[in-house]
Amino acid sequence: MSRVSENSSVSSINYALGKSKGKVEELQLKGSTLKRLTKPSDDPLGNVELMAVRSQKVDAEQYLRNLNFAKTQLSYTENILEEMTDILVTAKELAIGQASSIYSPDVRLAVSKEIHQIRNQVLGLANKRIGNRYLFSGQKVLTRPFDESGHYNGDQNKINIEINKDIFIPINLSGRDLFFCDEKKSIESGQLNLSPTSDDLQRTPAAESGEVPMSIFDELFALENALLNDNPKIIQGLLENLDSSIERVVTFRTEIGALTNTIANTETNIEKSNLVNEAHKSRIEDADVSVIMGDLQKEQAILKATYKASSNLMNTSLMDFLR
């Protein structure tokens, strides 16, 4: 038979009450915040996972911002290319019309004026900017890419933007690639290698080549001159050049279309993984209300029972029965 002393029963009552009350308090805190976690030790691994998921969420927000920025740039560029194609097609039609020698110099003069206008229009498009940034000057975004004579002042660099972790897309076309005919460069090339020690960072500024290849402006200028000089032969020769320029612009448009597609896909991907992350996050940090309320009720019942048992234990004594 084990002996029970006053102190042993009091301390066992205290222990039972303290334990039960502590649990009720903890559950009440969870119930009031509706969070399963209030400090790292509540679930050390969950907490770490939560922090990582939150980082991904913040990253995703930034990627979506980058993505929208790229989308704006590219759709703006695409609009310009579309307009430019139309204009160049007009110029080509005029040139085809003037390629035979049936027209009089007067008519050619009038057409030359029209071509002059077209050249100015193209120049205007080439110098377009968003905000204060020129679209076609490579990375020299604050430098006007083309002057009146069609001389190019920008560079050939691509501006790449990260639209999802490790996925970069270029958001600009350099004027050199778009308006000059000697070499056709795909805008997919020239991505930045990101390791800080890579050659890319050590690369010296690209040397501008000395000879100036023919640009759309040169072609239009030549066309204008040929019309003024009434020289259908040159006009005929220029038709081929104009054709290839138009083709180049159209190709770039297609490529931009492909990039826009990539952006749309990436956006869907990011949003999808956002949903997954959100669900994951909620699983880690959010408390299950029904479980908490159930536990709380159970714990309160236990506490009540403990009170009742304690009061019985404390109120009876042999003294009551001795007289």
Binding site: D59, S137, Q139, D155, E162, L192, L201
Partner: peptide, 22 residues
Amino acid sequence: AGLEANKPGDNRIAIAISKLQH
């Protein structure tokens, strides 16, 4: 922000620093 001089649109340094995150 940029790797090359006099190129206000060059963002390669900014990207490289942001990539340090991963």
